[in-house]
C-alpha cells in the first residue's frame, strides 16, 4: 500500500457505514497495488483504467465477504480479487493479437534474436523494449499460461503465493509454468 500511515481497519469501518470519503480514501490507497497488477496482466493501456474500476466496484460489492474471513490482510485479498478479475477479462477478450517480426522495433528484434537464436549476450537495450517484447509474447499465450508466467517471472511470486492467489494447486502452477515456458520458446523460434 502506498501510504504507510493508512489505517485500513478504521477506513473499512467507515466504509461499512457508507462514508463516501472513506471509500474514496480506500481507493486512493489501494490504487497503486491494483494498477500494478492490471498493467502486468493486461497489455492494453487504453483499457487499464476500466479494468481497475471493475476491480474496485467488485471490491466494494464483496466487502462483506472479506470481513467474514478475518486474519487475511486486506492487500492480499485485494490482490487475489484483482488477479482473478484480470484472468476473467483475458478469458473474455478471447482473440490474441497477431505479432509479426517485421512490425517489431529493432531493439525488440534484438531481444527476440537473443531468445530464439544462438546469440550468447543479451542486447544492451533499454529495459522498456524488453518489457514490451515480453508483453507481446505473453499476449500470445492462453490467459492461464500468461497469468502464471507474469506472476512467476515479472512479479517474482513464489509457487505457494501463486497457488493462493489463483486457487490452483502448487503442482498445477508448476506444470502450467513449465508448459507456458515451452510455448514461449516455440513462439520465439516461430518468429525466426
Amino acid at each position: 500500500m502506498a501510504d504507510s500511515e493508512f489505517d485500513s481497519g478504521r477506513c473499512l469501518e467507515r466504509v461499512r457505514l457508507h462514508d463516501q470519503d472513506a471509500a474514496a480514501a480506500l481507493v486512493e490507497a489501494l490504487y497503486p497495488q491494483v494498477i500494478r497488477i492490471v498493467r502486468n496482466h493486461w497489455a492494453k493501456q487504453s483499457d487499464e483504467e476500466d479494468l481497475a474500476q471493475e476491480i474496485f466496484l467488485k471490491l466494494f460489492s464483496r466487502l462483506d465477504q472479506y470481513e467474514a474471513r478475518a486474519g487475511i490482510p486486506l492487500e492480499h485479498w485485494v490482490s487475489r480479487l484483482a488477479v482473478r478479475t484480470c484472468l476473467d477479462a483475458l478469458r473474455a477478450k478471447g482473440r490474441r493479437p497477431e505479432v509479426r517480426i517485421g512490425d517489431l522495433p529493432e531493439e525488440q528484434q534484438a531481444w527476440l534474436d537473443y531468445l530464439a537464436a544462438d546469440e550468447s549476450a543479451p542486447p544492451d537495450s533499454a529495459a522498456g523494449s524488453a518489457r514490451e517484447l515480453v508483453g507481446k509474447l505473453l499476449a500470445k499465450l492462453s490467459p492461464e499460461d500468461r497469468l502464471v508466467i507474469t506472476l512467476l517471472d515479472l512479479e517474482e511470486k513464489s509457487v505457494k503465493e501463486i497457488s493462493e492467489l489463483t486457487g490452483w494447486g502448487q503442482s498445477l502452477v508448476k506444470v502450467r509454468a513449465f508448459r507456458a515456458r515451452r510455448k514461449l520458446r516455440k513462439l520465439a523460434q516461430a518468429f525466426k
Partner: peptide
C-alpha cells in the same frame, strides 16, 4: 528468458497514483 524478464522488471513504471477524480 529469465534474463529478458529480469531486464523487463527494470522498466520504469508509469505513475501509479489514481487519476484525478477516479477515487
Amino acid at each position: 528468458w529469465q534474463q529478458c524478464a529480469a531486464r523487463a522488471r527494470q522498466a520504469v513504471l508509469r505513475d501509479e497514483n489514481a487519476p484525478f477524480g477516479f477515487a
